[in-house]
Amino acid sequence: MSPLNITHYDAATGPVLHVDGELDYEHAPALREQVERLVLNPGQNLVIDLAALAFCDSTGITVLLAAHQRAQAAGARMTLAAVPANTLRILRVVGLDQVFTILPDSSA
C-alpha cells in the first residue's frame, strides 16, 4: 500500500485533490505529476485538501509551490484546505502563509 493516495474530483469551482498520506522526498512527485496532468481554466480554483496529510517536508512544499505556480500560469487560483497544524506551522516559518490562500477546513 502506498503511503500517498490522491483522489481527484471536479467541483463547480474547479478541480479538488484530496491528499491522503505523506508528502516527502519519496512520495511528493506523485502529487506533482497529478497536478501537471490537471486541466485548469482561467477563473477556476484548484483546491488541495490536506485534511488527511500525515507529513510534509521541503519536497512537499516544493510541490505545493509548483501547483500554485501552475494555477497562476493558467489564470486560476490555488487554495489549500484543512492544512494540519504541523504543516501550517512550517508554512508560517517559511512565509508561505503570505503567499497561499489557506482555508481552515475542507468546505471549499
Binding site: I61, L65, V94, G95, L96, Q98, V99
Partner: peptide, 13 residues
C-alpha cells in the same frame, strides 16, 4: 519579520 522562502516569487519581502 516578513521573510519568505528565497526563490519562490519574483519579488519577495
Amino acid at each position: 519579520p516578513g521573510g519568505l522562502l528565497v526563490g519562490v516569487l519574483p519579488t519577495a519581502p
